[in-house]
């Protein structure tokens, strides 16, 4: 869904106040929208959830709003995966790393007697549950966001994982 205009930005105003940008981002963060693009005479802003881009670019050169990206609230901030030392140094461009979004314990099945959710060589699609990470009695199913093939499982079942730790290597199809 794309929003074209937003009432909280008066058209007569020369510049969009940083407070208004903050308000706007808060609104988007709580709206449940995955992607929002807004264009006014002074400003073009597009916000994408789930690790997408957050950018605000001035249209008219005389009215820069260059500080806008820094004001992004945490909820829509893109998570830039920082290269971690455990990442294999050179991955082919068609291979992606699925990382742990949280600290917890990594499980490959939903219970001690349940089958493994994925194995090496399995074809996966977006929405396919790859593993469970448990923390504080909170169980988290980690879903694939891509289509591809599991080529490597980097963590042993029932072991602790850190935030951003690589879990799987997936070859994209």
């Amino acid at each position: 869904m794309v929003l074209k205009t937003l009432s909280l930005v008066p058209k007569t105003r020369k510049n969009m106040e940083t407070k208004e940008i903050q308000k706007l981002l808060d609104f988007i963060a709580h709206s449940g929208l995955d992607e929002v693009s807004i264009e006014t005479s002074e400003l073009k802003i597009s916000v994408k959830r789930y690790g997408g881009t957050v950018s605000a670019a001035p249209v008219a050169a005389s009215m820069p709003v260059a500080t806008a990206p820094a004001l992004t609230p945490a909820a829509v901030q893109p998570v830039s995966p920082v290269a971690s030392p455990i990442t294999p140094p050179a991955l082919p461009s068609n291979v992606i790393t699925v990382r742990s979004p949280m600290i917890g314990t990594f499980y490959r099945s939903s219970g001690p007697e349940s089958p493994l959710m994925v194995e090496i060589g399995d074809e996966i699609k977006p929405g396919k549950v790859l593993c469970i990470i448990e923390a504080m009695k909170l169980f988290n199913e980690i879903e694939s966001e891509v289509s591809g093939k599991i080529i490597k499982i980097l963590v042993e079942n029932a072991t602790p994982v850190e935030f951003d730790q690589p879990l799987f290597l997936v070859e994209l199809v």
């Binding site: 959830r49 789930y50 690790g51 998570v79 979004p101 949280m102 009695k137 909170l138």
Partner: peptide, 28 residues
């Protein structure tokens, strides 16, 4: 996240609990 009742005579007893299962997409 369990609920406990502090009984003056019988001690501490569990009244209930909760268990949350999330589905994550990316970091959300």
């Amino acid at each position: 996240n369990d609920l406990y009742h502090l009984h003056p005579a019988e001690g501490n007893q569990k009244l209930g609990g909760l268990l949350i299962e999330n589905t994550l997409q990316g970091y959300q």
